[in-house]
Amino acid sequence: MIEPSKESGNTIKLAERRVFSHSFKPLYDEGMGLVEQTAEYLDGKGRAEAKKLSRLAATLYAAESMRLTTRLMQVASWLLLQRAANSGEMTRDQVASEKSKVRLDTASAREDAAGWSELPAAFLDLVNRSLSLQALVRRMDDEIYGERTELSTAASMRRTNPVSDQISLLNTAFARG
């Protein structure tokens, strides 16, 4: 197992201590569990619920589903890298090099986006849980690796540009044929 680094004197970064210890397992389990729950939902109940949506809401659902799966795959990649470091399969430098390929900034549409209120509650729960998990992982990544200066919250990960939201909806609509 990799020992946590000491920043100055005897100060130990708490996030780093958590990631490089046995207390990492619950976070890992939560993240991988959310990935599994999301896949089950999207392949089952979510597919059926999406068919009942208006065209506008269905387009938003499709776009948000892509964002959701992208977000969770990036978080899962980060968690797998940390687990590999924790188990000694990778060095801290190897993890730092590989994690540069991981993006922890996948945004979501805004709650006031057209069609948002029609989206199924179970789907919105998965979106919100994924945003919260991404924000937690991003804060931990910031503390451990120190590459970002701002802390992110689930709310700040919501897209704030309505034009961008509409362009995403249009791209999704035309991609569907």
Rank of each mutant, 00 (worst) to 15 (best):
L136D: 13
S97C: 09
Q134Y: 10
Y61N: 05
A122M: 00
T70Q: 11
G88D: 02
L60V: 09
Q74P: 01
N128Q: 14
R47D: 11
A63I: 05
Q74L: 03
D142H: 14
A84W: 08
A58C: 07
R83Y: 11
N128T: 08
A57G: 07
K99M: 15
L68E: 03
N86T: 06
A50I: 07
P120K: 03
K99L: 11
R138E: 09
W116G: 00
S117E: 11
R92N: 06
K51L: 15
G115P: 05
L56G: 04
T91I: 08
A114E: 15
D105N: 13
W116V: 02
T106A: 07
D112Q: 09
K99S: 13
M140K: 02
E118Q: 12
E111W: 05
E89S: 13
A48D: 15
G88L: 03
A63R: 08
A107C: 05
G146H: 07
V137P: 04
R129W: 08
L79Q: 03
A84D: 10
L104H: 07
A48E: 15
V102P: 01
F123K: 05
A63F: 13
K101H: 14
L60P: 06
V127S: 00
R83H: 12
F123M: 04
K51A: 15
M90W: 11
L136P: 00
I144T: 15
V102T: 10
D105Y: 11
A96W: 11
D142G: 10
G146E: 15
V127Q: 06
K101P: 01
A135W: 10
E118C: 00
D125R: 13
Y145C: 01
W78Q: 05
G115E: 04
Q94C: 03
E143T: 06
R92I: 09
W116P: 02
E49R: 12
Y145H: 14
T69L: 07
V95P: 02
A107T: 13
L53C: 07
T106V: 15
Q82V: 09
A84K: 12
A135H: 08
Y145W: 15
E118F: 10
L68Q: 06
W78E: 04
E49K: 12
M73G: 11
L119H: 03
D125I: 01
M73A: 11
I144D: 04
T91W: 12
R67S: 08
A135P: 06
M140V: 03
L56N: 10
A122Y: 00
E118K: 08
D141A: 06
